Simulated scan of single mutants.
Amino acid sequence: MVLKCIAIDDEPLALRLINEYVSRFPALQMVNTFEDAITGAEFLKNNPIDLLFVDINMPDITGIDLVRSLEVKPMVIFTTAYKNFAYEGFELEALDYILKPIDLKRFTKAVEKVIDYHKYKNKPAADETDESLYVYSEYRMVKIDTATIEYIESMEDYIKIHITNAKTILTLMPMKKVLEKLPSTKFQRIHRSYIVPVSKIRSIQNRKVQLTNIELPISETYNDFARNWSKQK
């Protein structure tokens, strides 16, 4: 696996640094670099790539507008000296957001995320052995080990993913979509507001599921799950 990359930045020094960092990763191949966004955008229209490093604050067109204009979007890492563009990066589902000056350690973390996410997106459809879930939270793509999920709670347009001994993760995603991303044999929806890991169910009684640290209701729509779980026991 080699991911083809380009970098767009109006600062030549930043481009050289990104190019030098990319050369340290066998999984990445820098195809081209551009000092202006318009030329870079033209290249992207005719040349499919896997990963785009793009500065946000450029004089001719912003990196945000460039990515928004693309019909086919590659994986994106934004680079910028400004923190105030984070929400726009989240809106465009950027994999990461690196502040300048770019540190090698921080760059490495972003690239590792890209490689992991590429493998995740390209796994066979029937593969349920993968133990990871990727969601956008706090303006970045976050990797979650599914074994650490205690339960998932709907909060209107958002969901809260409750994690064992860690901070709860809030992400903009419907329940149906997150359920599709989870292994169907390991997670079940029990209510319009709750998804639970089957392995962490301690008991089911009076249309309530007892998990390790919380009791959650089962709605009438999902009564079949309760009956099937009881039979398996």
Rank of each mutant, 00 (worst) to 15 (best):
K109S: 06
I152H: 02
L133V: 04
P183N: 14
A125S: 11
L95P: 02
V72C: 07
K181S: 14
E150P: 02
T168F: 01
I161L: 06
V135C: 04
T171L: 09
L182D: 04
F85P: 06
L92F: 08
K181A: 14
K177I: 01
A147C: 10
P124Q: 05
Y136I: 06
L92S: 06
I115A: 08
T168P: 00
A125F: 00
A81L: 05
G89R: 01
A110D: 00
P124W: 11
E112N: 15
K113G: 12
L92E: 14
Y82W: 14
F85K: 05
V114L: 11
P183Q: 12
P124V: 09
V135Y: 00
S154V: 08
S137Y: 03
A110S: 13
I152F: 00
A166P: 06
Y82F: 15
D145Q: 08
Y151H: 14
K143A: 09
K167I: 08
L99E: 14
K181M: 15
I152E: 10
S132W: 03
I98Q: 07
Y134H: 00
T185N: 15
I169D: 07
K160Q: 11
E91S: 01
F107H: 02
L172N: 09
K121T: 11
S132L: 06
E150I: 15
T171M: 08
K177W: 04
D145I: 12
T168M: 05
T146I: 15
M173I: 13
V142P: 04
N165Q: 13
A147V: 04
Y117Q: 02
L170V: 13
Y136W: 10
T79C: 12
V142M: 08
L182S: 05
Y97V: 03
I102K: 07
V135A: 00
Y151F: 10
E128Y: 02
Y87A: 09
K109L: 10
V135I: 12
Y139S: 11
S184H: 12
K176H: 08
N165G: 08
D96V: 06
L172F: 09
I163H: 02
F107L: 06
T185D: 15
V114H: 07
K160H: 09
E128I: 07
K100E: 11
I152S: 08
I163S: 10
E138T: 13
T164H: 11
L182F: 01
F85R: 07
V111A: 01
S137H: 05
K143N: 13
E156C: 05
P74M: 06
P124C: 10
V135E: 02
E93N: 15
L92N: 06
D103R: 07
V135H: 01
K109M: 10
L179K: 04
T168G: 01
K73D: 08
A81W: 01
A86W: 02
E91T: 04
T168W: 00
F78R: 01
T171E: 10
Y139K: 06
E156V: 10
F85A: 03
T148F: 08
E131R: 12
L104A: 12
K123V: 07
R140G: 04
D145V: 06
I144T: 03
N122S: 09
N165K: 14
D157L: 05
Y87L: 14
V76W: 01
I152A: 08
M141C: 15
T80L: 10
I159G: 03
T168H: 03
T146M: 14
F85D: 11
